[in-house]
Design a protein around this nucleic acid. Sequence first.
DNA 1: AATGAATGAGAGTTCATTCAT
DNA 2: GATGAATGAACTCTCATTCAT
Lengths: 210, 210, 210, 210
Amino acid sequence: MRASNARKKVSLDPADRRKQILRAAIDVFAERGFHKTRISDIAKRAKVAYGLIYHYFDSKEHVLASVFEENWAVFVKVLKDISVDGHKGSAEKLGAVSDLLIGALRHEPALIQVIIQEISRSDRIGLAGKVDAFEEAFKIVRAIIHEGQKKGELARDLDAQVGTYLFFGALETVCTGFMLKKFTVKNEAEAEALKKSVRRALLDGMRERP
Amino acid sequence: MRASNARKKVSLDPADRRKQILRAAIDVFAERGFHKTRISDIAKRAKVAYGLIYHYFDSKEHVLASVFEENWAVFVKVLKDISVDGHKGSAEKLGAVSDLLIGALRHEPALIQVIIQEISRSDRIGLAGKVDAFEEAFKIVRAIIHEGQKKGELARDLDAQVGTYLFFGALETVCTGFMLKKFTVKNEAEAEALKKSVRRALLDGMRERP
Amino acid sequence: MRASNARKKVSLDPADRRKQILRAAIDVFAERGFHKTRISDIAKRAKVAYGLIYHYFDSKEHVLASVFEENWAVFVKVLKDISVDGHKGSAEKLGAVSDLLIGALRHEPALIQVIIQEISRSDRIGLAGKVDAFEEAFKIVRAIIHEGQKKGELARDLDAQVGTYLFFGALETVCTGFMLKKFTVKNEAEAEALKKSVRRALLDGMRERP
Amino acid sequence: MRASNARKKVSLDPADRRKQILRAAIDVFAERGFHKTRISDIAKRAKVAYGLIYHYFDSKEHVLASVFEENWAVFVKVLKDISVDGHKGSAEKLGAVSDLLIGALRHEPALIQVIIQEISRSDRIGLAGKVDAFEEAFKIVRAIIHEGQKKGELARDLDAQVGTYLFFGALETVCTGFMLKKFTVKNEAEAEALKKSVRRALLDGMRERP
DNA sequence: AATGAATGAGAGTTCATTCAT
DNA sequence: GATGAATGAACTCTCATTCAT
């Protein structure tokens, strides 16, 4: 009664097709933000019919949630590994976290952008529980800070909670600036320089040391 | 029978009515984000009919733009004053900017939240030019950093652009954490403590000094 | 950003406009059935923009629910009055109910059609509670039958529940036939004849009495 | 490696597969109504892939039409046999029709439900011609009534057309009540009682005979 | 035959914006 | 100035149907 028509696309492996859609979603979310991207934008980018997205995902929200779920766990895992690494001091650990984020940013800028910009604000989107999952990363960093303060490696006159926010906030905006091409990283050397710059600022501040 | 047996709401001073709407808009934007707030939400909060908003503003975007325009200039002005203050060193200037933002946050958390969250992302909203206006503040801070580096007061091994982003990013997330009640500032003393904490972290880093 | 255009319609009294939409909804529901009628069909019939329907009703379901709620109570009220009328015997009461329905059918065929066809099947539509409200009428008739059986006025060898279903079912299909123009009632006399015919069949059956 | 190491479901006899789908369709149509059942619902119930349904049927409408066509003829045949049965009086014939329907209802409740609920409303579904086919049964019963009236066995003061509608309507709602479990028939004896009850009501009315 | 990926018309709903009152 | 009825573009989501495999 209803449909009819047009050139069908060759069927891919479902898992690949799913990835393809997720990839497109990440890119478009990063570019336009969750609210402004239409399902049809994702479809267009993925070069599939918009209806197909509903084969793989329940809703637009679910697409975003999947982006998060299928990437966040990996990140948190590495974060955890860093946090329990016996060979590193607390400052070193924070540096490693910073490096990790900036490294990820270089390889998956859009993904990091989406996770940071959209999921962390997902209370406004209606992704219950996602903010909590986000909280995990905060906890780990907070724990590193706490530990460092106890050991005397990190400044005691800094509230750990505030410190955690500062830490992530600083990194987040670097992400944003990076996405907006306010500064670029053209090669490995520049990437290392950026990492060092950020580490330096976070750990030792902007003031020149005597 | 002749006189003003006013039916509905008495007409306020137009400027007041406008402020009332802007006030409501700031609060609702801060709570729900620009995209998720409907004109009718603003109207409800301002206790006016939603049609009235179009007497004072051209569009929803224009409401947001007005929030920005009517508050940002003040902030930039103070920023400028700080940046040219001959009595302050560069580090001190950055500290003053940080204090300024945190102070503003305490008194106008919703406003700061909106400016930071929505306007800085306004490229996604369609507020051409607002990002540029935002850029002003970045320039000033960048200039302070540059100057400080030249004078040897600020770390030379930090890219000024990156530093600026870190600086604002750190402050932004403190704002967000504050809005989300992740940490609170109950009195003047706590406010001062927060300012000091942030200043310390920004200027001297999280690492304990020997 | 979005809308623009076209000739606005003069504002009516809201209550009138609501009625106008409900009227259109009843007609279209009766013609096409709930599922096949689109909101835009109702709007077209009411000669309003489809968006306006959402000013007055939450959803398509809510329109149907309103049709029911704003008409059913009246019917049940009259039904109740009949059922407690001390001057009537049980058979007379059933006759009166039949007359009531057929009378209503003549004056509001579409309304009766909708109530009978759509609401009684509303479990399939998702109008929880409406079926229960419907049950009220069944109860009243069942009570009349019970009472009549006790008094010896109505056949004892008829299950009251089954009888109630037969009774309403017979009337329902008369409604449907009426709507489908399978038989018509052109004037008061014919209406009376139809009432008598139905009453006769329900109370004394189709068999000729000796 | 050559032979039939069948991967998926073994191919059944095509006719069986078709029946299996129709069976599922009947059940699901009865439960949810034609409009609310999706092709995929039928497929799920039949435990086949939904695409397969299009091997056996042209469309969803066609499935419904097949339900009708492949069952209705049988019913009409029996109806006809009853109507020309020289051994029965007109009232007896009506009783036999009623018994027939109620008997069918007991053995194939879903089928009867679908035929009565969906096909009789098929003008709203787009099954041209099906209503006409339905009309056949009406004609037969109308003829019985006519004949009975002529012979003096059935009430003359009942319009035959109206009588036919009453007759089918009463039976239809009994079907509905039966499907909704508003009354049940647990064994043969209860089935006979129900038949008798209905026959009694239809032929002799609800009033107690002196 | 059988499967389910792929497609897109269609329908419901939201809400910025306009404008008669 | 103030109100809220009225409008329709835009968007999400559903699902019948097609067709490559």
